Amino acid sequence: MRILMVALAATVLAGCAGSAMDDARTQAPYKVMTSDKAEKLVAQCVQFAWQDEAVFGVDAGAYLQPGKKGGSTVYTRSAESFVDLSTEPSGTTLNYYAQKDDFVAKRRLAALATCL
């Protein structure tokens, strides 16, 4: 029963985050970056960096899922920040989105930049 409740909660949260991400994708990304590294390695690094409780405190959740159009997406709770990663011939392209231009968004961008 407990497992069912956890699965249901995760599904609901993913649905809420999905609509917020779809809305954000209609706008220009907060920042576009590239990396020479493989997309999966960069995505795992970003997820790990965003889960650092020493930097982000109790809001250190980061989730990795397949991207809407291929690649990967790493996102935080309620999709306050997320990054779409895609493989290009020259490496990996990262489109970073943030709901607010605040200290937390800049801190997540800095953590993301360490993975390039």
Rank of each mutant, 00 (worst) to 15 (best):
M1R: 10
M1T: 10
R2H: 05
R2S: 06
I3R: 13
I3A: 13
V6A: 13
A7W: 02
L8S: 08
A9F: 10
A9W: 04
L13Q: 07
M21N: 08
M21E: 10
D22M: 09
D23T: 10
A24N: 05
R25Q: 12
R25D: 06
T26Y: 02
T26F: 04
Q27C: 01
Y30E: 09
K31G: 01
K31D: 14
M33N: 05
T34W: 03
S35A: 13
S35P: 09
S35G: 10
D36Q: 13
D36E: 14
K37V: 01
K37I: 00
E39V: 12
E39L: 01
K40Q: 13
K40I: 11
L41D: 15
A43W: 02
A43P: 08
Q44E: 15
C45Y: 09
Q47L: 05
Q47H: 03
A49E: 14
E53P: 02
A54L: 12
F56E: 06
G57A: 05
D59A: 14
D59P: 00
A60T: 02
A60C: 08
G61A: 08
G61K: 03
Y63C: 00
L64W: 06
Q65I: 08
G67N: 12
G67L: 10
K69Q: 13
G70K: 06
G71R: 05
S72A: 14
S72M: 10
S72F: 15
Y75S: 14
Y75P: 00
A79D: 05
A79H: 01
E80H: 09
S81H: 12
S81A: 14
V83F: 03
V83N: 01
V83Q: 02
D84A: 10
L85N: 05
S86D: 13
E88S: 11
E88F: 01
E88H: 09
S90A: 15
S90K: 14
S90F: 01
G91M: 02
T93F: 00
L94R: 01
L94M: 15
N95C: 04
Y96D: 10
Y97R: 04
K100E: 15
K100F: 14
D101N: 14
D101V: 02
D102A: 09
D102E: 08
F103R: 14
V104I: 13
A105H: 06
K106E: 09
R107K: 13
A110G: 11
A111D: 04
L112P: 08
A113N: 11
A113Q: 15
A113E: 15
A113G: 04
T114L: 11
C115P: 06
C115E: 01
C115D: 06
C115W: 06
